[in-house]
């Protein structure tokens, strides 16, 4: 049985990357606790528009935890605190109590400049992916399904790595602004499969170089990234990326 809660929401307003930004507050009344966090923000925006104020800007798309667009830093945790990793769109108001103050901030990282309020520019991830996060294969008729045999464990692990949705929570949580969990997951999803091995060395070097070029920080293995990853990516991926990178550099 849903109950209604009232709380104060403190949300970040920033008019572009150069603006200093500030918090605004609003008291929210009688919000059913089975409302999702993003639905609550929709209600907030309806109220703001009805009051003739500018709505609060935030990223969202599929609202079912697979697109990686939602990106809010809620009460000190990327995507808000849940028992298991979840995206902001999978966070429900039952996680909060009547009378709470909920602080909503954008991902704060030099490589993710604020576009507006809590919407940040994460195209840096696209650039890293474009640098080497693919396999080069000839098009044409598809080969037999079993032409390349892959052990089930490898296929499963590659799939786990591929579930990274590139939301950027890892960067947001990292005190170093490092993107290693994202990059290592993308490198791993190919490095674990025979089709990806062909370009493994080139890929690791190109993606790390692009990551460094875009101003992400150096990983110091604090594990904050894997603690907040909505897809439970492991820092074992980071060890694999380090291994791939070192092997590639030593072979040069």
């Amino acid at each position: 049985m849903a109950k209604n809660i009232s709380f104060t929401i403190r949300y970040w307003k920033q008019n572009g990357p150069k603006d200093a930004g500030h918090f605004e507050e609003r008291r929210m009344h009688d919000i059913p606790d089975d409302t999702s966090f993003l639905e609550m923000l929709d209600i907030l925006n309806e109220e703001l528009i009805n009051d003739g104020k500018e709505p609060f800007v935030f990223d969202h798309d599929c609202r079912e935890g697979i697109c990686g667009m939602c990106s809010l830093y809620i009460n000190g945790t990327p995507h808000g605190k849940t028992e298991r990793g979840a995206t902001t769109c999978q966070l429900y108001m039952r996680r909060f109590n009547d009378g709470d103050t909920i602080t909503v901030e954008p991902w704060r990282s030099a490589a993710f400049p604020v576009i507006k309020d809590c919407m940040v520019d994460r195209s840096a991830f696209d650039k890293i992916q474009a640098a080497g996060g693919y396999t080069t294969i000839r098009t044409g008729q598809a080969q037999d399904a079993n032409a390349i045999l892959i052990p089930k464990d490898d296929a499963d692990e590659a799939m786990d790595c591929a579930t990274c949705i590139g939301c950027g929570a890892c960067v947001a949580a990292c005190k170093n602004g490092s993107a290693m969990l994202f990059v290592s997951s993308k490198v791993s999803q190919f490095a674990l499969l025979p089709q990806g091995r062909v370009e493994a060395a080139k890929r690791a070097k190109a993606m790390v170089a692009k990551m460094d070029e875009l101003g992400f920080g150096n990983c110091t293995n604090t594990r904050a990234c894997e603690a907040v990853c909505p897809k439970s990516e492991s820092i074992a991926n980071i060890a694999r990326l380090n291994r791939e990178f070192l092997k590639a550099k030593l072979a040069d």
Binding site: F23, Y73, E105, R108, S109, G215, F216
Partner: peptide, 9 residues
Amino acid sequence: ARGANRYAV
């Protein structure tokens, strides 16, 4: 890399 703004919470 962390950027100029720090988290409030």
